[in-house]
Design a protein around this nucleic acid. Structure first.
Length: 267
DNA sequence: GCGACAG
DNA sequence: ATCTTGTCGC
């Protein structure tokens, strides 16, 4: 009875080793991409709210990306890209792609699972020189707010660097970082008398990772905003606030709704 | 050692 | 991420 094969256990040794060597590769990739990261405003447009001398282009087209998953087969996903016109608050572009994912979700490595589909959608639009190509992209997932923050970063930074696009990370849950937890942050946000409902996320190390923000009056639960690429935290906050009809900023919310819808009607 | 851990 | 209905309220 001893020689009974335990496929799951003998497998998991190999599988675990494979997984950790895979993760070491991923850490190197994140580290190398981080060398290209820009964490201050670096774009040629300006916010519509900010008056300024000179005639420069105004931020008008804001993109949002998200993935939804099949309830039956969790490896089937629909990635969606939408672009919102800030002046009309309407969706002016939508594209999506249903794919089979071969990479599992591992905390800290979301980008390796989700970025490829989304980058393809962006690429397609750029290659067509589409006139609504986003000037900025909001990503469902964190940017600099990452548990191994010194040399790593999240999905929003990953996409920003690879697409060379200004990006903002928006999380609906806090990825525990540097002593910050969801419950303590929520308490602090309640206690804070910040009129803008914003709390700087400063970790035990003194590092500022992003902010927690009550984005709409209705919701006690905050969203977590962090710098993605080619943008400062202050600008990121301003743009997120500008696009929040509800708790989740509209570009991401629309991408979420539409990707879920497409998955329902198409598989 | 154990639990926690974006989507 | 996904499983899940109605319900209270502006």
């Amino acid at each position: 009875m001893n020689d009974a094969k335990e496929p799951s256990s003998s497998n998991s040794n190999f599988s675990n080793e494979f997984q950790s060597s895979q993760q070491m590769d991923w850490l190197r990739v994140q580290d190398s991409l981080k060398g290209k990261l820009i964490t201050e405003d670096d774009f040629k447009w300006r916010l519509p709210t900010r008056e300024k001398e000179g005639s420069c282009e105004i931020l008008k087209y804001v993109g949002g990306v998200d993935l939804s998953f099949s309830k039956d087969d969790s490896s089937i996903a629909c990635g969606t890209l939408v672009v919102l016109d800030l002046t009309t608050h309407k969706v002016v572009y939508e594209d999506s792609s249903i794919v089979r994912l071969h990479i599992p979700y591992l905390p800290g490595f979301l980008a390796f699972r989700e970025a490829p589909v989304l980058l393809e959608l962006l690429d397609k639009m750029k290659n067509n020189a589409h006139c609504f190509y986003p000037q900025l992209l909001m990503v469902d997932g964190n940017g600099l707010l990452h548990p191994r923050g010194k040399f790593c970063f999240g999905l929003a930074c990953h996409i920003g660097v690879l697409a060379d696009l200004p990006t903002v990370g928006v999380g609906k849950n806090l990825h525990h970082v540097d002593g910050l937890t969801q419950s303590t942050v929520r308490e602090l946000l309640q206690a804070a008398d910040s009129p803008k409902h914003v709390l700087l996320l400063i970790g035990d190390s003194g590092c500022t990772w992003g902010v927690a923000m009550r984005s709409s009056e209705g919701s006690l639960k905050p969203i977590f905003i962090s710098v993605g690429h080619r943008i400062s935290l202050a600008t990121a906050i301003e743009i997120v606030r500008m696009t929040c009809r509800f708790r989740v900023p509209e570009p991401i919310r629309q991408a979420d709704i539409r990707s879920r819808e497409r998955l329902r009607n198409n598989q």
